[in-house]
């Protein structure tokens, strides 16, 4: 089956997002096992196995979408939309975690958070989510639970 132009755009987006999330997740998992990889500090990649697993899951959802769209299945966009939703949910969780830690550092003045800055909790799950965020605003109408249909 031939892939439509609109689906081609979604496929390219999913490929980019999928690769970014999957690679970031893998690096985070590897770092979590104590293996040093260059650029982890510069890219704010924490040594966090579970966090890496989350990114890997989001990346896999996008890449599943690429696979189906590449096979000409319109239904593959489901993976792209759900990947976007997952990416934004987890970015939201990470931002809330920063908020909670900011409370500890600046309001409760907890000893454990002495010298803490929001950058300490910055991670790929937050900044890569800018890409799905842009995609969300582009395809928002198709992702509404109230009126969204896959009719392409």
């Amino acid at each position: 089956m031939k892939t439509s132009k609109s689906n081609k755009n979604k496929m390219l987006f999913a490929l980019l997002a999928g690769i970014l999330y999957a690679i970031s997740g893998l690096i985070q998992i590897v770092a979590g096992f104590g293996l040093e990889i260059g650029l982890t500090d510069a890219l704010f990649i924490p040594a966090d196995i579970f966090g890496g697993f989350i990114l890997l899951v989001i990346g896999s959802v996008f890449l599943f979408g690429v696979k189906e769209l590449n096979e000409g299945l319109n239904e593959g966009v489901a993976y792209v939309y759900v990947g976007i939703i997952l990416a934004l949910i987890f970015a939201g969780i990470y931002v809330l975690v920063i908020g909670a830690n900011a409370l500890e550092a600046y309001v409760i003045l907890s000893d454990d958070f002495e010298g803490w800055t929001p950058l300490d909790d910055m991670k790929p799950g937050i900044y890569i989510a800018i890409i799905p965020l842009i995609a969300y605003f582009s395809w928002k109408s198709k992702m509404s639970l109230a009126r969204g249909y896959l009719d392409e």
Partner: peptide, 29 residues
Amino acid sequence: KKLTVSDMIDRVFTNKYLGLPIFLAFMWG
């Protein structure tokens, strides 16, 4: 005839390979 967003979400969430990892991801979150 038409796949709703609810159907699309289910397509991913009940996927044989992704369903369980997504569930674990939500629980971890």
